[in-house]
Write a protein that binds this DNA or RNA. Structure first.
Lengths: 222, 222
DNA sequence: CACCACGGACAATTATCTTTTCCAACGTGA
DNA sequence: TCACGTTGGAAAAGATAATTGTCCGTGGTG
């Protein structure tokens, strides 16, 4: 086998796409700067359709875009272009721009007042597959999303395979009829299993059972 | 029964508690250092019961404690001592110690190889109410916990106040009876509201409604 | 023996749909 | 400005259907 790598070829194939609807003059300059500093191809696009599928990084200029357009753009990126990492440019402080980080495809955010050298450092980081997110936003996300592990005090609830299957379906809102069809058993059987599950995990009804599942630390350990 | 100083009432509200089961000699030195550097009272405790309720910061020494003990200790802190911020000391890299950050009471983490000046800076930050968490862990948390906002496509579901109230209760597993009692209305009314809600948000039953709420970006915007 | 499937019988809860009551906002004419 | 109808939305209630939950069984299978 060969260990030969071809960095030149790689760089020419994969570049940075800069999506912006701003004056092509400034944006072009920025693209040029990025290209020179990172030794990578950086092209400007004004329409999402033009953006090639294979790029290493997609920079989205928030400037001049309203948040709805921006959101739907990011959604498109998330849905249509698989496996691309994106980053926001010229984001406003304490704006809805910051919420776009909820999308798993967005790995970086540069504020409108970011210095050049910071931008370059961030881009390097992003190209390496790392994040570039202001610590403040990371803290906010942690603060908002973490919660006390709730199932760690569930000592030894041993669920059978069938019971686990049914619980997973419950979690997604399946009715008894749905479950009976999905597992090709009678509704009576479903009820029996559920009845046993409720007693095992100590809940009153399917809603609490669903929440029990959804609150698990790790759904796969079910 | 020892050189552990009994904190005075006035100072206890502004002090740091260092919980450790390590050699009192080193730990005592650390407490002394912290006390001098931060100009704050820092006392060592070896039993959770001894830790006073009102402290500004609780440092938990991971060294020499196994993870089960640590976890149950943090749980106790979380459950019993309300409104205290804790931080982990001497955490191992890539260990279960890091998972203790899931507990909302844990705001900081210092690895076993943390330098003195970093520790001091971190403590200052924590005393200011900020976090002190390695960026790597923040990134990992972000990566693991964020997901594409699922309610962005809900165009203009206008829920009334009552409907929002009921949805919030539903989310926590309340039955119609629970809701009727909580809101002091008849069960009939609850059913009507729910019926209307189902149609508005396009779900089949209360379980899907509950999931709809739980999948919201921001529960508060409900 | 634990797990799974199935069934009956009944109770309890939930879902659907219609109707009624209440209240606040709006416009109009005197 | 003040009654007055009118309107529309929300809250509430009633009646009925549908689903879910409880508890008791019976076998079958590895």
């Amino acid at each position: 086998m060969s260990y030969i790598t071809e960095p030149e070829l790689k760089n020419s194939e994969q570049g940075i796409a800069l999506f912006s609807n701003n004056s092509s003059l400034q944006t072009g300059l920025l693209a040029k700067l990025i290209g020179e500093e990172l030794q990578i191809n950086c092209d400007v696009y004004r329409e999402i359709e033009e953006v090639p599928k294979e790029i290493s990084l997609l920079l989205v200029d928030c400037n001049g875009q309203n948040i709805e357009v921006l959101t739907s753009f990011i959604r498109d990126v998330h849905d249509k272009i698989d496996d691309v990492t994106a980053a926001l440019l010229n984001a406003e402080h304490d704006s809805d721009h910051e919420r776009l980080l909820d999308w798993p495809c967005v790995s970086g955010l540069f504020y409108v007042d970011t210095e050049q050298d910071q931008l370059i450092r961030g881009l390097h980081s992003l190209l390496d597959g790392d994040f570039w997110v202001p610590r403040r936003l990371l803290h906010r996300f942690l603060d908002k999303n973490r919660k006390a592990p709730s199932n760690f005090k569930r000592p030894n609830v041993k669920l059978t395979k069938r019971e686990r299957q049914i619980l997973k379906l419950i979690k997604d809102g399946a009715t008894n009829a749905d479950i009976s069809e999905a597992l090709s058993v009678s509704e009576h059987t479903v009820k029996s299993h559920l009845y046993n599950v409720y007693k095992k995990i100590g809940v009153r009804n399917r809603l609490e059972a669903s929440n029990w599942v959804r609150d698990m630390d790790d759904l796969d350990t079910l």
